[in-house]
Design a protein around this nucleic acid. Structure first.
Lengths: 279, 279
DNA sequence: TTTTGTGAACTCATTCACAGCT
DNA sequence: AGCTGTGAATGAGTTCACAAAA
């Protein structure tokens, strides 16, 4: 019940969230380098390939402890192993996928997962037409078996690619089935216990962010340092509001509320910044 | 040529990147509320539904100028319109999609786009078997027509859902076709001019971040404030490295380099934090 | 009284610049 | 000479807490 746990034993290292995200990217670049037979890489080279600055890259890596050799660079294989381990990828995550529509099938067949240590162990859907079919070597099972199957298969990660209506139910089943984390492609905000990590990818949000940024870019190719962007030449206009019909009428339906996430526990995890939403 | 352009006219407002991302989320919640006939919503209610704290929500909205009525709340329709406009969604973006595999088809058929003001205007693929087929009311055209078609169709956004090998070529064509921004589902780092905004969604990265976070969650449900997370009980082990075979041998192939993004311009845009990568 | 809007304090993240090792 | 690792400086983003408005 203690509030925090910053130092269970002696000296610890903490990896900032933003760094974790980038580590995953470095890992991909390192794989490519390894495939090309490259043995040593400098921070400068690696950074360029990953699309970041070299200082940031070095800072990121420093959270894992000493990695490279001064005056030389990083041993590609060694660094790869270290990041793998830091991200917990060497644990061999077993993944179940709910929803085998177009998106689900794309995910099931995505080679990038297997290549990074994720094994797809179960596919689930509620559509009888899809149940029983085989996709990428796995037979689609009915979503009702999800809870039991998660335990049998020892799944640690659940991916949700179902229509929005099914999302809550599926999420609950994944939680009951004991998965540690959920990747959802629905815009719905999930409501899960604190110990389950949720990451949400909302395609429409991605597009909307793009839309905003493009609105700003139209004017000048040179201008505007991107981290924050100018908007609205005339931003004012205090809202006269309450023009005529509202005020007390039809407020939030008292009886049912907004019907969206009447979250008893105020959505703990829900991935941080970026494409995803923060708690 | 001037370095910055913070104040073209009088008083301006700047919207932080992180806020932009959340605005898109608020917008979705507002749509649902509107559908339910809700007219007024408080910051507390809206925040809960969106999975954020109410203070953050109010701060976010404050960048758009005054929106609500004190003691009352926000007019759902009005707020929606304001965010729509701030994000540039009222411009009616026209979207072209390259790569009509499973993922591409999922995107083409995704109702969430149309619902938020994006119109899919063109589908492209290089596979002769797919060219000519009709998906969701659009005929798939050959990717070689992309440059011309982008101009004809007046596309502002390009989505890339092709295999990695095709990504660079397609990106170049989109740029030549004059799109303002690109949403890519490939892990490849794109190399585009500064005025083109790139947003990258890397599914494997999402999973890897989850993996990391779950590694930490296993121990205690109570512990660890999430923003940064403890790692490695024994983080030390300075690398003996240079054990035997490497050092000067087979360094980065001088002739060809890492062959990945030998970026002349150091990748300007590339979306910020989160699922995506930072410049 | 209720709820917004916002300065001010604080936490997290990036960039700089250089000491320290090979 | 070259490149990593990191403290210190800066900047972005979040939380707090309260004054002002309805």
């Amino acid at each position: 019940m203690t509030e925090e746990r910053p130092s269970p034993s002696g000296v610890e290292r903490v990896i900032p969230q933003a760094t974790v995200t980038r580590l995953a990217t470095y890992l991909r670049v390192l794989s490519i380098l390894a495939d090309e037979g490259v043995l040593i890489v400098s921070s400068e080279e690696l950074a360029t390939a990953a699309g970041v600055g070299s200082a940031k890259l070095r800072k990121d890596l420093s959270f894992l402890g000493p990695n490279g050799v001064r005056g030389v660079g990083y041993d590609v294989a060694r660094l790869r192993a270290k990041i793998d381990s830091a991200l917990g990828l060497d644990r061999g995550h077993r993944v179940v996928l709910a929803g085998v529509g177009n998106l689900g099938q794309a995910l099931a067949g995505y080679g990038g997962f297997a290549r990074r240590g994720f094994t797809m162990v179960g596919l689930f859907d509620s559509d009888p037409a899809r149940v029983g079919t085989e996709i990428d070597g796995l037979t689609v099972r009915h979503v009702d078996e999800l809870v039991v199957a998660c335990r049998e298969l020892e799944a640690t990660i659940g991916v949700i690619a179902t229509p929005d209506e099914a999302v809550h139910g599926v999420a609950q089943q994944l939680v009951d089935g004991g998965v540690e984390c959920i990747l959802s492609f629905s815009p719905m905000v999930l409501d899960v216990p604190d110990h389950v990590e949720v990451r949400r990818v909302d395609l429409a949000v991605e597009m909307q962010v793009l839309s905003f940024n493009s609105s700003r870019n139209v004017s000048g190719p040179a201008g505007i340092a991107d981290p924050a962007i100018v908007v609205a030449p005339r931003p004012v206009s205090p809202p006269p509001l309450t023009s005529s019909p509202l005020t007390s009428t039809a407020r939030l339906g008292r009886s049912h509320g907004p019907r969206i996430a009447g979250n008893p526990n105020p959505v703990n995890s829900s991935t941080r910044n970026g494409s995803v939403i923060a708690p």
